[in-house]
Measured scan of single mutants.
Amino acid sequence: MMAYMNPGPHYSVNALALSGPSVDLMHQAVPYPSAPRKQRRERTTFTRSQLEELEALFAKTQYPDVYAREEVALKINLPESRVQVWFKNRRAKCRQQRQQQKQQQQPPGGQAKARPAKRKAGTSPRPSTDVCPDPLGISDSYSPPLPGPSGSPTTAVATVSIWSPASESPLPEAQRAGLVASGPSLTSAPYAMTYAPASAFCSSPSAYGSPSSYFSGLDPYLSPMVPQLGGPALSPLSGPSVGPSLAQSPTSLSGQSYGAYSPVDSLEFKDPTGTWKFTYNPMDPLDYKDQSAWKFQIL
């Protein structure tokens, strides 16, 4: 009977010793046993002879290597770790002494450095960015050149030099007046198309007034536009458009034309069986010896 009264063996659950049927240790109110408190290391007290050895090595170098620390530790009968900690504390003490010396050398008012006064946003004049500046400075420094007289040679050079070769001289006033084509001369031969040399188009003023001019072949195509416009036809070669000034309004060009419109200028042929003959000019830059190549039959 006494065997049943004795408590059973101890069981360990999660490293906790349980005594038989008792489960009081598993209750929430019972805390787990805490780790033992780490003991504080005792402070090391250095003797005068030990301090002399350490100070002598510190005077040589503030960062001794492990071999120098072990050698000193053997002399003063201390572990190497204590020597390492002593050098660490000695360097910190040396830095603190240097900072105190710097503070003593500075004057009393030198510690508080005078800061520059901050400028207020409204006091300083700042350039306004509302208006974009002129990058080319046209509004201040540029002045347009004065327009020359209508009959000045410089204007003629600016007008005619675009179309004339570089080897030719500017046309005088008398020749510029001949550039304007007359109405009857352009409409006299509506079906004849003559190819003149390129030099005649640039230099010869008579080429624009003769039936064999460069633009005589364009007349049949330009004249039928007159009834559609409801007024006189516009002429690209009329009046002052080739003269001194090219800047004319469309209203000033509306009254200039080749001449009176005639039914002869239409595109319809009077004789459907007729042929169109292209007159060959020996001055043509295209060297075609066979003139029969310039004739064709309209079917």
Rank of each mutant, 00 (worst) to 15 (best):
A29C: 10
K289A: 01
T123Y: 00
P36Q: 05
L179I: 08
S150W: 10
L218V: 03
A247K: 10
P205M: 09
T159Y: 13
S235A: 08
P172Y: 10
Y214T: 01
Y67S: 08
E70N: 08
V30T: 02
D290T: 15
I138M: 04
S161P: 00
S206G: 04
K93F: 15
G230C: 13
A15T: 06
A158V: 14
T154K: 11
A166T: 02
F296K: 00
A73L: 14
L136E: 09
K118R: 02
V66M: 04
L78A: 11
R90T: 15
P250I: 14
E80P: 06
G274T: 01
Q96L: 06
P236M: 13
P220A: 08
W294N: 00
P149R: 09
K88N: 14
G122F: 07
A189Q: 04
R40W: 12
L286A: 01
F269S: 00
D287E: 08
S252G: 01
S12G: 04
A73E: 12
P135F: 08
Q256F: 15
Q291S: 08
T123Q: 08
A35K: 08
F87Y: 13
P33S: 08
R90N: 12
T251E: 02
T251I: 13
P197V: 14
P172M: 14
E55K: 10
V72H: 13
R82Y: 15
K295Y: 11
L136Q: 04
P236C: 14
R69A: 13
A59L: 05
E42Y: 08
K118P: 01
R48I: 09
A117I: 01
V30A: 04
L286Q: 04
A189D: 00
C202K: 03
Y4M: 00
F201R: 01
Y280P: 00
Q50C: 15
S216V: 15
Q175A: 08
G8P: 03
A233D: 02
G110T: 03
F215I: 04
G255V: 11
S152E: 02
K120P: 01
L253Q: 03
F269E: 00
G239R: 15
G20C: 12
L286V: 02
Q99G: 04
Y214W: 07
Q97Y: 10
S262V: 11
P236W: 14
V226A: 02
L229V: 04
S161F: 14
T273F: 10
L171D: 05
P272C: 12
P250K: 14
Y214P: 01
P165M: 09
P153G: 08
G209P: 02
P190Q: 05
R41A: 15
P144M: 04
R176S: 03
G20T: 12
K60D: 10
S216G: 06
W86L: 14
P211K: 14
L146T: 05
R115D: 01
P232A: 08
A15H: 09
A181M: 13
T129N: 09
G122H: 10
S252T: 06
P9W: 14
S34V: 06
P165E: 01
Q84A: 06
V66N: 04
K277I: 12
S152T: 05
S212I: 12
D265I: 15
G137H: 07
F215K: 05
P116K: 10
G243F: 12
S81Y: 12
E52A: 04
G230L: 12
W276N: 00
E80L: 09
R95E: 14
Y261N: 01
P64K: 14
M193V: 10
F58Q: 13
P7E: 00
S152C: 05
Q99W: 08
E52H: 10
P172S: 05
A233K: 07
K270H: 09
L179Y: 03
I162Q: 00
Y195K: 03
P272S: 09
Q96D: 09
A35V: 04
A196Q: 02
A56Y: 04
D140R: 08
P220Q: 04
S249R: 13
G259F: 14
F46D: 14
K93W: 12
V160D: 00
S252Q: 04
N77W: 12
R41K: 08
P227E: 03
P127E: 08
L179D: 01
R82W: 15
P107W: 08
R95L: 14
S143V: 05
V85P: 15
P282A: 03
L136S: 03
V157D: 02
K93A: 14
P64L: 12
P236E: 02
D284P: 12
A260E: 02
K270Y: 12
G122E: 01
R98E: 06
A3S: 03
S124D: 04
S257N: 04
L51K: 08
A247V: 09
A293P: 10
G217Q: 03
S245D: 00
G8V: 09
Y214H: 01
T159R: 05
S245Q: 05
S128C: 06
T47K: 06
V23M: 07
V226L: 08
L136M: 09
P282D: 02
T61Q: 04
Y11W: 11
L16K: 00
A192S: 08
G217P: 11
F296I: 14
A3W: 14
T187D: 02
D130R: 05
Q50G: 15
S212K: 10
Y11K: 01
S167E: 04
L171Y: 02
V131N: 09
M283N: 01
F269I: 03
S249A: 04
L18P: 00
R176A: 05
S238G: 05
G20S: 03
S169F: 14
L78C: 14
P133L: 03
